[in-house]
Every structure is written in C-alpha cells, then in structure tokens.
Design a binder for these strands. Sequence first.
DNA 1: TTGAAAGCGCTAACAA
DNA 2: TTGTTAGCGCTTTCAA
Lengths: 337, 337
Amino acid sequence: MTTINDVARAAGVSPATVSRVFNGGRVTAERAERVRRTAAELGFSPNRVARSLRMQRASVIGLIIPDIENPFFTSLARGVEDAAQQTNLSVVLCNTDEDVDKERRYLEIAAAEQMAGVIVAAASRNRTDLSVLEGRGMPVVAVDRRPRGASVDAVMVDNQHGGEEATAHLLRSGYRRIACIAGPEGASTSDDRLAGYRAVLRDHLRETGGGALRPEYVRHGDFRVEGGRAAMADLLALPEPPDAVFVANNLMTVGALEALREAGTEPPRTGVLSFGDVPWASLVRPPLSTVQLPSYDLGWTAAGLLQERIAGTARPLQTVVLRTALQVRESTSGPEA
Amino acid sequence: MTTINDVARAAGVSPATVSRVFNGGRVTAERAERVRRTAAELGFSPNRVARSLRMQRASVIGLIIPDIENPFFTSLARGVEDAAQQTNLSVVLCNTDEDVDKERRYLEIAAAEQMAGVIVAAASRNRTDLSVLEGRGMPVVAVDRRPRGASVDAVMVDNQHGGEEATAHLLRSGYRRIACIAGPEGASTSDDRLAGYRAVLRDHLRETGGGALRPEYVRHGDFRVEGGRAAMADLLALPEPPDAVFVANNLMTVGALEALREAGTEPPRTGVLSFGDVPWASLVRPPLSTVQLPSYDLGWTAAGLLQERIAGTARPLQTVVLRTALQVRESTSGPEA
DNA sequence: TTGAAAGCGCTAACAA
DNA sequence: TTGTTAGCGCTTTCAA
C-alpha cells in the first residue's frame, strides 16, 4: 500500500507537506501540483484508519434503526445519506431488529470506532441506553423515537396529532366503533398515536353521551405484519367487532388487511386507516387512507442537526417536530359505502 | 477515554497482558480475572480504530448494493448481516443508487477504511471496476451480478433458468403473445432472464411453426417502478398488444400493473409474471405469480464465502448459483380465465 | 511555507 | 507466562 511517506519521498517533500496538500493546508501551488501528480501516479489514497486514530474521530456517522426491511426506515436512511454526502461523511447502517441487546452492541461499536456521530431510532423508549455515547461526548441525534432521559437533539413526528387527525377522520366518515391496533407498549411513537386516538374518541363520547372508551378495542401489536394480523383477528372475534380500525404502523396494516380478507370483509365496510404509508399502496384495493409520515425529511433533518453538533456549534438541545399529513382514500369512505 | 495503558497501570500489569486478555492470548486465570475486573471498573472498551491500524485490517465488511429501497436487497442484506454476526464482523451498508460513480467512491472508501472484505452487487456489469480492491488483495465477493472481468468469488441466481421457467409457464397457461419487460441492457441479471425468455419462446415457435420472435415485444426498463409503467404502456399501445408479460424485476412489475389498471385491463386476462417477489404480494389482487428469488440465502452464502477468504482459506475462485422457484398464483391463470 | 518529530491506542516480535 | 518496545499511517505542533 502506498503511504503518505512514499509520496513524500517520490515528490521530494516532507510527509507533512503531502498531508497539507490533501487537507487544505498552505502549500505553494507548484509543490502542491507536484505532490498531487506523484500521488496520482503512485495510486495513493489516504489511509482513513490512521487518519481517524490521529484525529480521534472518523468521518463516518452511524445510523441505527430497528428494521431495515420497513420502507419507513429505508426512506429515512436515504434522507440521512443524501444530507451526509454534502459534507463527505459516509453513513454506516446498523439494523437492531428492535432488539435492545443488538442495539447496545452497535452503540458500543459506534463508540469504539470513534464515529463522528450517531443517529438512532431507538429500539425501546425505556431500555435503550445512550449513555455509552453521551459519556464520550459523542454527538447523538434521536430520530422518530426518543429514549427516556436521553439528553440529545431529536427529530420527531407529531404522533399525537397524527392519531387525533386519523381518529377524527374516521368519526367524520361515519364509523362509530373505532378500534386501535397500537404498537408495543413503551414505544413512544405508538403511545402518542394511541393518546391521540383516545383523546379524540373521549371527546366525541362526551359530546354525544356515548358512554366510555372500550378498552377491548385497543390491542397492542409488535409493529410487524404478524402482530397486525393477530390483533385484527382478536378484534373480529369480539361479540361486537369494531366497524373501523386505526392501525399504528404500516406493516401491521398489511397484517390487518389480510385478517379482514380472511374474515370475508373488506374496507371500507370496515374502515382501515394506516399510520404510515404502506409500500406500493397504489396496488392495494381499495386504495388505503393513510397518515403520511415525513420519513425522508426526518432523516435529512436529523443529519443536519448531527452535522451541526459535529462541527461543534454550541446551542441548547433541540427537538424538531415534523407534522404528518392525512391522505384520504377509499378505505375509510364510510360503513355504508 | 480509557485506554489499554490505563487498565494496565490500574491492574498492575503490562499493556500487552491486557491486550492478551481481550484477544485470547495466554494469561494466567488470576491475572486475567483482575484485568477484566479493572477494565469493567474503568469502563474500558478497546479502540477499534487503533486496532485496525495496527492489524492493517478492520473488523467490518462492506456491503455495496444498488438500491436500499428494493426489498430484494434489504432481504439480501439481512442474510449478510446474520451470517456476519457469527464471526463478530459488523456490516456497513452502502447504497449506490445504480450509479457507477457513487459506487466507485464507496469502493475507495472500503479500501481506505481497510475493511476486512466487501460484498458487492454491482451497479453495472461493464463499468463497475473492482480493481481498486483486487489490487490491494482485499477479499471480494460479487453477489447477484458479476462485473465482467472481475476475478472474484460470486453468488448468483440462475436467471436464465428462471426466465425459461417463467416463459414456459406462460405458454402452458395458454398465452401466445408473450412480451418481456427486461432491465437495463448490460445488466447481467436482466440479460440472462431475457435469454431464458427468448430460448423458450424460440423453441416454441419452431415447434409450432409460429414464425419468428417479435422484437417489439421486448422492452428495456430501468428496474424501477416508473420504467415498468412506461414499458407496459408502450406494449399496450402496439397494434397487437401482448396477452401476457414477463417482467424482469419486482419494482417494474408494480409499474406494469399500474399501467394495466389505467388501461382498464387486469391479470389474468393479460397475464403478469414477476421475476422476484413483489412486497406485500398478499395484498395485490389478483395474487401475483412470481419467480421467487433466494435473496436472503444469496446474502448468507456470500458472507460465508467472504469469511472463508478473509480467514485466508486458499481455494480456487468459485461461483455458487442458487435456483429460483416458480410460484404460480392467479395472475397467470390464462387469457380465457 | 516547510520539515522534524511526537504520538494517537493498539498488537506482535522478541527477550526475559 | 510476562514485559519491553517498535511501529501501523497519519496530523499537528514547533522551530526554522
């Protein structure tokens, strides 16, 4: 492998000069040109490992996400990647599978690799522990989910608002027995969506004298297809099944739709509203109403915050909240439709 | 940051002993225990950057793929990740967007970061250039696509066989004007699928005296949704449109289905067979016949080969070819169905 | 503007 | 089995 010393010798300068040429130090144009030429001839490219060791910081940021097969996170990853490219940072993607242990290993790796910073969509609000990174003063941005007690910048979705908007829409469409398939208890995203659902429903019941919330209409899934299917099956087995369901994430919606189909009913007779776009939604019949998430912008914004921190900008911690957008399609056109 | 020297001093041993404790060298049990305890107390974790510099090799492998939003590649990535975990390698995911320049940058990064090895699904058969890595003797495994002239291990799909199987099935189902939406020219995966299609169709025409292949029935798309839609629209605009179409990848199938729907026709009247599973195929109506790809196994196998190379096993270059499996569903049940 | 030299944290060769 | 020591390739003082 060609090193900076080889280039220096061949070009008749010192290693320091070569380093300066590659890092924007002050070198006379003539020498700089000579160095560049020799470097090209020798096929030299700087050893980033040595560089990282010396600088005590790599030019890599870590992106830790719970599920690489969920299009929400891949789109988020694209946002991070595109933003990072602007400052020549490369992105390392780590998939935790919603597993806190796997996540901890990746956090330790990020620390040990001296990554420039980390963007993390935490596997758990309670059990994800960012102290490994915070202890080392490593810049961290939480995205989509913020672990309790973490002192980090965050970019979040207005989940409660999204849940409210979704539930209000279902009520407006004429549904009255509205269920909710929530995510795992403790996931802040899911809790907030559920809170939005409850708030709107409770108000509605109060105004119409319609009684109390029905706890049996709330089920907790695992954010996966299977969990959605099981929850929907449970709901359909109730003495009085719901006439609409608000599903707290895209994958569970896929499962819920499958369960409905198996039971011989379809939207919009049973209304279905998905939190988060279902991939290839265009192919699903009937077209699905969704609460659209700004996944790409989430990633883009998080990367921006992280880069500011890496650059050392001193400013108070901040949380950016991005809004959802309700996309009404046919799956919620009403129980009589 | 706590270093190996801090631990050594605190435990009253030499740095070398600490290193040995963490890397399986011979150390007496009693001392090892003491070192481990002090390391824990001080919150020491080895600096992987220093380790990589010294060892001239990182414990990271690169996985370079063309499209992180394509479920085929995310599933492949899972296979790689799961296999890599077994030997404590971490995986860095790089997304090239089918862009040869972006790909070259990532290959250079892999070299400069001294990654232990690279698994690459090349952006182009002709223009992807692995010589940066080969020159440094870095272990490389090509997966799904093998760049021309590269001397590397490879794990491939039997694309030609898949194309033959698909086309033969369409003929058996009674379709006679069978079109093919292929991928970009030059992509080996697409070329092979197309070759399979042509071979079977040519044989059929010869046997039945049905004339020659119709070149207008072959369109080239870009492996994306939009390309599939455009190609299908072109086919439908022909004086004599096809009665079935073999689409060479999953995303283009989504586009083709959309175009069919817009034109007011649906499978199986126009037969549609997708090469590669469409995500959430269960929700697509009618259920889609597919050639199923062993995406996860592709990744798993590639990681296995790479690890052997990293370990230094000397053996001739090998190419593993995995078979596809035809999954017949309703979208190809025949033009009269 | 340039070069000499130190040192980032670790591993491995060698000596004890 | 253990310790001493050199050095991986780079950046960055400091002095010239």
